[in-house]
């Protein structure tokens, strides 16, 4: 066998347990792999973003369709989609920031975009809560007709993300929509079941004294503040309960909703 001429040939001809060759192969494998992975990732990013945006729009549409009379109201107002605005949850007021491209789900893990929660307040098991939340609203002649609040909670097997639509009194639930969940199929995943979500509209979050009394109860739900838990999915049901308590409370939208009620839009 003749001596290989090129540097590449000499490199390949080295014995496999040679240190230079070991390092070289390790480097080459890592480099080529990184190149392939990052190229695919960057090339496919626009398509993936479009998919995510379409998915969110579809879920929003599905929820709007579920609200009785809302489509007619929107036609009357002459709008085709809800308006999105950012709320500063720390200040309990609107934020001036631009909502376009704001990623609510990603903000949970970004230290500069979220507020750490004290353990006793963190009933939703989130750790951090974003400073800004994108709420969707429908207004007519300066009056609020509907407001949709995004929420999240750490469930039994996954992070559950939801949208809660409230009537103009900011207390009556118009609809609940689960936008993302990975709970046990057939049990906890039934929070996506339209039959279960159908019991939400008309429920009230607070009592006359302004305390949050909304509950997800085992057994038979009664009264305007209770919805049925899902049997066989106690932890998922509890998570939904805690989600409502957390996001409607003082660490969630509580201060913002109070201000909205007093001052209007």
């Amino acid at each position: 066998m003749s001596e290989p001429r090129t540097a590449w040939g000499r490199f390949l001809a080295r014995p496999n347990d040679d240190r230079t060759k070991t390092l070289g192969i390790a480097f080459l494998t890592a480099f080529i792999s990184a190149l392939v992975v990052s190229t695919t990732s960057i090339a496919l990013k626009p398509l993936q973003d479009a998919n995510i945006a379409a998915e969110q729009a579809a879920r929003m549409d599905a929820m709007l369709d579920a609200l009785p009379g809302l489509r007619a109201l929107m036609e009357e107002t002459g709008v085709t989609a809800l308006e999105t605005r950012l709320v500063d949850l720390d200040a309990g007021d609107w934020s001036d920031a631009d909502p376009t491209g704001y990623d609510f789900a990603a903000a949970f893990t970004e230290p500069e975009a979220s507020t750490p929660l004290p353990p006793e307040a963190d009933i939703a098991g989130l750790g951090n809560r974003p400073v800004l939340a994108p709420v969707h609203l429908l207004e007519r002649e300066g009056e609020l007709m509907l407001i949709v609040l995004p929420m999240a909670v750490s469930g039994y097997a996954s992070t559950i993300r939801a949208m809660l639509a409230l009537e103009p009194d900011l207390n009556t639930v118009a609809a609940l929509s689960i936008t993302e969940q990975g709970e046990t199929p057939g049990l906890g995943a039934r929070i996506e079941d339209p039959a279960w979500q159908a019991q939400w509209p008309g429920k009230e979050v607070t009592n006359d004294a302004g305390e949050i009394v909304f509950s997800v109860v085992r057994g038979q739900a009664s009264g305007p503040h209770e919805v049925d838990a899902i049997s066989g999915a106690t932890r998922t049901s509890n998570a939904i309960h805690n989600m409502m308590r957390f996001w409607m409370g003082e660490w969630g939208y509580g201060p913002f909703l109070d201000r909205l009620e007093e001052e209007g839009l």
Binding site: N16, D17, K21, T22, I25, A26, T29, S33
Partner: peptide
């Protein structure tokens, strides 16, 4: 050309 000492790592990377 896979050195046996880093055989598994190279395979897993690929």
């Amino acid at each position: 050309h896979i050195p046996s000492s880093i055989r598994l790592i190279v395979q897993i990377t690929i």
